[in-house]
């Protein structure tokens, strides 16, 4: 009886072990990619930093993401090949032509239109990685129309970027985490004096 129990327990454990696939969100890499993206859009990427994320060693903490980031995502683990630590080169890629095209468009829009709105305090960075016209009165009427439109365009682009980064990296379900990382990065890269939304939704000036 005891033996039977032990066997079935072991079998159950084995089964559980077989079906559980842990996919960790590579927060550090995502953060690196977000920084590269955001700094280029804002136009602060002058000191061309090496964008390649440092390979993560097993057990190294991924940083501030909402999910724990133990290590780079192991593609092979998904289909059951290789050990858990077989790969270390996974990163979050933002190099697809579509994302790059959107990035270029966003950079142009940011530097020609939105930056002035942020400087004037009219625009703010929301906690979900978007832009909001928080104080339209700070803009001349003519600009108000153009900037409101630019903000709508930019938010459409942002939404597409968060989605495409997740999909391009093979994990559509990461969209909200990618968005979260970008949201933090927009605020981290914001110039002082720009407004952003804190975690509670209140507006703060950096």
């Amino acid at each position: 009886m005891q033996r039977w129990l032990g066997t079935s327990l072991a079998a159950a454990l084995l089964l559980t072990a077989c079906v559980t696939i842990n996919v960790y969100f590579p927060a550090a890499e995502a953060k690196e990619a977000a920084k590269e993206f955001v700094d280029k859009v804002i136009g602060d990427d002058a000191p061309a930093t090496e964008a390649k994320p440092a390979p993560q060693t097993p057990g190294g903490q991924g940083g501030s993401a909402s999910l724990q980031s133990r290590r780079s995502f192991d593609w092979l683990a998904l289909i059951g090949i290789g050990s858990a630590y077989a790969q270390e080169s996974a990163d979050i890629s933002i190099k697809t032509p579509a994302i790059q095209a959107i990035q270029n468009r966003m950079a142009t829009r940011f530097q020609t239109q939105l930056a002035a709105g942020f400087d004037a305090g009219a625009l703010g960075l929301t906690r979900d990685g978007m832009v909001e016209v928080r104080d339209a009165a700070k803009l001349a009427l003519k600009d108000r129309v153009a900037i409101t439109q630019a903000v709508a365009d930019d938010n459409r682009d942002r939404k597409a970027v968060y989605r495409e980064v997740a999909v391009a990296n093979g994990h559509p379900e990461w969209e909200s985490q990618i968005r979260g990382i970008f949201a933090q990065q927009w605020i981290a890269s914001a110039h002082s004096g720009w407004w952003y939304q804190d975690a509670g939704g209140g507006w703060k000036q950096k």
């Binding site: 104080d135 339209a136 009165a137 700070k138 803009l139 001349a140 009427l141 003519k142 108000r144």
Partner: peptide
């Protein structure tokens, strides 16, 4: 004529 409201929602120029 130019006018504005504090929240910028209504304006004329």
């Amino acid at each position: 004529l130019g006018l504005d409201t504090p929240d910028g929602s209504i304006a004329a120029e």
